[in-house]
């Protein structure tokens, strides 16, 4: 059985569809003849969904402040009852994971998460990086469809197909009972300066090797001088040195910059998965056996608290 019909959950973010949504539409187009998209609160996204290959955009409508998970999953379950796709692709975002989990339980179908590759080999094959990205697990669904596939950011390249605007079809939510009663009452945006972590061509990240929270300022300074973004390992986010929005790794952001500079990061499994796709990797760590050196194009065995200030001085000297 080959794959002919794929649905993609596309997530509205600040008046556009999220980057991962566009990556998934692009990949879906290469796998299946028919690609449909599902979104919420957004007939306005018909042009963009069509531009990236969706022929139909199912719109769940305004959620009136409810978290999307339960409502969007119910709308999709309603669509599935009328016509079953081969697979439903969902971005691995906060809301995407909620939708996938709710939908899985609603339609009683399995979900495969942390997917970083997709192929059609007589049916859909998913790829998952395990053990710090050292091994790739390939898996497939064995029962009746649709299989639910949650895909990590930056697994595919977003490429417009130049297609016409998708035709918009309303997808009613139906009865939600108690499940959709979680409501957003306020949103807080944490101010960031410089480019976004996921988009920056240069990422400078700090870890435990910095020694203390105050030293993270060195990472931010180096990032600023390189017109890059500052990232962090889970260890120092958990320790409260820096906000979660800086976290790179399995549970944080996936980055693929031109160069990734890891400062005092040993290279735990959890971190490597989020950055090993970087084009170039520079690592500074005082432990010569730190796993991060195994994937670094340039490794400096030394104390980040002396190397980083020297680097900052050198960059300032160049700028002046």
């Amino acid at each position: 059985m080959t794959t002919s019909n794929i649905w993609v959950v596309v997530e509205p973010v600040n008046g556009s569809l999220s980057a991962t949504s566009l990556e998934l539409l692009s990949q879906a187009r290469t796998l299946a003849g028919s690609v449909s998209a599902i979104t919420w609160g957004g007939a306005a996204h018909a042009a963009q969904a069509g531009e990236y290959g969706a022929s139909t955009l199912y719109d769940v409508g305004d959620l009136a402040g409810a978290l999307p998970g339960a409502s969007v999953a119910r709308a999709i379950a309603g669509l599935v009852a009328a016509g079953i796709p081969d697979a439903i692709l969902i971005p691995a975002s906060y809301d995407g994971r909620d939708i996938a989990a709710r939908l899985s339980a609603l339609v009683d179908r399995p979900v495969l998460t942390n997917v970083s590759g997709l192929a059609d080999e007589d049916g859909l094959v998913t790829e998952h990086q395990v053990f710090g990205g050292t091994q790739v697990v390939r898996a497939r669904f064995t029962g009746e469809g649709p299989g639910l596939v949650v895909v990590r950011a930056k697994s595919f390249i977003a490429e417009p197909s130049g297609g016409p605007a998708a035709s918009v079809v309303a997808a009613p939510v139906g009865e939600t009972g108690r499940t959709a009663t979680a409501r957003v009452t306020a949103s807080h945006v944490e101010e960031r300066v410089g480019p976004k972590l996921e988009e920056a061509p240069v990422v400078v990240s700090g870890g435990r090797g910095l020694g203390e929270a105050g030293q993270y300022a060195l990472v931010e300074e180096a990032a600023r001088l390189l017109n890059g973004a500052a990232g962090a390992s889970r260890a120092i986010v958990d320790a409260g040195w820096v906000a979660y929005s800086h976290q790179v790794g399995q549970t944080g952001k996936t980055v693929k910059p031109t160069v990734y500079i890891a400062c005092g990061i040993s290279g735990a499994t959890q971190h490597m998965v989020g950055m090993k796709g970087s084009k170039n990797i520079v690592a500074i760590n005082k432990d010569p056996d730190a796993p991060i050196f195994q994937i670094a194009d340039l490794g400096i065995v030394g104390d980040v608290r002396t190397v980083l200030p020297s680097l900052i001085e050198a960059l300032k000297a160049r700028a002046s």
């Binding site: 500074i284 010569p288 050196f293 195994q294 994937i295 670094a296 194009d297 340039l298 490794g299 400096i300 065995v301 030394g302 104390d303 002396t306 190397v307 980083l308 020297s310 680097l311 001085e313 050198a314």
Partner: peptide, 13 residues
Amino acid sequence: AGAKYVDDGEGAA
């Protein structure tokens, strides 16, 4: 893995 140097003051350079 690429080149790995022990920092002797030239790491930043």
